[in-house]
Design a protein around this nucleic acid. Structure first.
Lengths: 206, 206
DNA sequence: AACGAAATAGTAGAAAACTACTATTTTATA
DNA sequence: TATAAAATAGTAGTTTTCTACTATTTCGTT
C-alpha cells in the first residue's frame, strides 16, 4: 500500500484526484492539503510515501516546499504536478529536490504508473522530459537567471510604469533602470516590452 | 438520475472529476471529452442533462461551444467551469448561454450542489457571482467591447511584432494598426503596451 | 581575500510607441 | 435601408523604448 499526500490549491482538482487515486488498490490517500505551508505542517506529523505536489500554489509555492523537504531530509518522495513544460521550469523542479514530474494533463493511467514507478524505483520521468532537460543543457549559456532586482523591475514595467517612473519609485537613475531592462531582454531573448510582459506572466515571474 | 457530460482539456482533471461525480448517487457521467469540437460531435449523438464545460480550452473554446449550443437549441444545460472571476468573463459566459457558473477551486460539495440546483431550477450561481455581475452593470459604459480585428492586433503585439510588422502581416497601413492600438488602449483604459499584454493574458483574450 | 554576479550609471543615436486629432469606407443589423 | 460600429488611413509632434557600448561599486560565496 502506497500512502499519498495531495497538495493542490484548487479544491475541485484535489478532491477529484483524491477520489480517483483512492479507488486504486495499491494506493491510499492519507492527506489532502491546499498549499505549501500546510504541507510542511502535515509532514511534521506523518510522512507519506509520496507527495503529489502542485507547483503553482499561493502562500508558498512548490519550489519553496521542495526546498524545505530537501533541507529537512524528509524521506517522502515528491511527484511534481504542473501544467508547464518549459525546460527552465522542469530543471528547477528537479534541482529543488523532486523525484518525479508529471504534467497535469496526463491521464489516470500515466499518473498511477508514475506513482508506482516512483515508489519502486525512486524516480519518475518520461523520455520526453529527459529529452527536454538534456537538450537545454547542451545549448546552455548558464547565465539566464533573472535576479531579484530584475524581477522587481519586470513587475513595475507590467504595471505600466515608464522607465523614469520606475527610477523614481526605486530611487535609482533612469539609466540603471534602462540597463536592467536591456539585460532582461537579452537574458530572456526577447524583443520588446510586450514579449517581456507575456513571458513574465506565463512563466509566473509576476 | 442526472446525466452529465464533462469537457476539459486536462485529462487528469476530467478523469478525477468523472470518478468523483460517478460516485454520487444521483449523478451519472455519460461522456467525457477534451475540447469544444468533441462536445459538438457528441451532442449530436446524445443529449445529457448537464454539460460541465471548461471555458479555457484549445481547438475551440467554451464561448464558441456555448454559442453553438444556444444556436442549435440543444436542451442540455451548461455549467461553466473556470478559474477566472472577472466580471467581464462571467458576463460573457452567461451571455453566451450558460445556465450556471462555478469556479474550479470550489469543492465537491459545492459542485454537487450546483449540479442539483441547475437540474432542478435550471440555473445556478452564487450570491458572490450575482453581486459581481450586478455591480459591473452599474458602472458600465457599455462600449468596452474589443472587436475581432482588435483582438487580432493584440495577439500580434503580444507576439512582439512592431506596428509596421503587424501592418505587413495584415496587409493594412501602419496608420491603421496605430489607430487600432490607440483605440484598444482607450477602450481598456490602459497606458501602454505592457499593460495591454498583461490585461489581455489575464482576461483570457490571448 | 579573491572572484564573479548583480546593481549601479553613463553617452549617443535610432526605432518604436504614444497623443491628439480628422475623415472615409466597409460591414452588420435593427 | 438607415444607422451605428468597425475598419480603414492620414498629419504632426512628443515621449518612450531599444541598441550598443563602457565602467564603477556592491554583494554573496568560495
Amino acid at each position: 500500500m502506497i500512502s499519498i499526500m495531495i497538495a493542490d490549491d484548487h479544491q475541485m482538482f484535489r478532491e477529484g484526484l483524491s477520489v480517483m487515486l483512492d479507488s486504486e488498490k495499491d494506493i491510499q490517500v492519507i492527506d489532502v492539503v491546499s498549499n505549501g505551508k500546510e504541507v510542511i505542517k502535515r509532514l511534521g506529523l506523518r510522512t507519506p510515501d509520496i507527495l503529489l505536489l502542485d507547483i503553482e500554489m499561493p502562500l508558498q509555492d512548490g519550489f519553496d516546499t521542495l526546498k524545505w523537504i530537501k533541507n529537512e531530509k524528509i524521506p517522502t518522495k515528491v511527484l511534481a504536478l504542473t501544467m508547464h513544460k518549459s525546460s527552465e521550469f522542469i530543471k528547477r523542479i528537479f534541482m529543488s529536490g523532486a523525484s518525479g514530474y508529471i504534467q497535469k494533463d496526463m491521464g489516470r493511467k500515466e499518473l498511477v504508473k508514475a506513482i508506482l514507478t516512483l515508489y519502486k524505483e525512486g524516480m519518475y520521468y518520461t523520455p520526453e522530459i529527459s529529452k527536454i532537460v538534456m537538450e537545454s543543457l547542451k545549448n546552455k549559456n548558464q547565465k539566464s537567471q533573472i535576479s531579484k532586482r530584475e524581477k522587481e523591475i519586470i513587475k513595475l514595467i507590467a504595471d505600466q510604469l515608464t522607465t523614469s517612473e520606475i527610477a523614481k519609485r526605486l530611487h535609482i537613475s533612469p539609466k540603471t533602470v534602462e540597463s536592467h531592462r536591456q539585460n532582461i531582454l537579452l537574458k530572456l531573448s526577447l524583443k520588446n516590452t510586450a514579449g517581456l510582459v507575456k513571458y513574465a506572466i506565463q512563466k509566473g515571474i509576476i
